[in-house]
């Protein structure tokens, strides 16, 4: 019985460590995105940020999806500054672990 409990504990710890160290998907609601050419600044700024893995821009929805590498977390303040430097306004942000 003790062996089974130790085994299950080990599995749970392994699972939780995998979840905790996985990358994160940030959905940024960005205002001011009217043209594709101008939006390049956002891609450029985000991709230069350490730990950013992928950037996708949806102009119609005004959403920028940013995926980070395992263990990399970015704060709303960081995103706000990056978006501002690109010439736009960060309206809101949500985040979830990458599958």
């Amino acid at each position: 019985m003790k062996t089974i409990a130790q085994f299950l504990t080990g599995i749970i710890m392994l699972w939780s460590s995998m979840v905790l160290s996985a990358g994160t998907q940030y959905d940024l609601r960005v205002d001011g995105l009217s043209c594709p050419f101008c939006a390049y600044g956002i891609e450029k700024k985000l991709k230069k940020t350490k730990g950013v893995d992928a950037v996708e821009i949806d102009l119609e929805q005004g959403v920028v999806v940013v995926n980070t590498e395992e263990g990399v977390k970015l704060s709303e303040a960081q995103f706000k500054q990056l978006v501002k430097d690109a010439g736009f306004t960060l309206r809101s942000m949500t985040e979830k672990p990458l599958p």
């Binding site: 205002d31 001011g32 995105l33 009217s34 101008c38 102009l59 119609e60 005004g62 010439g87 736009f88 306004t89």
Partner: peptide, 12 residues
Amino acid sequence: YRFWRRDSLGVQ
């Protein structure tokens, strides 16, 4: 120098 800006969804 851009001294004023107002952003909304899809509009600048």
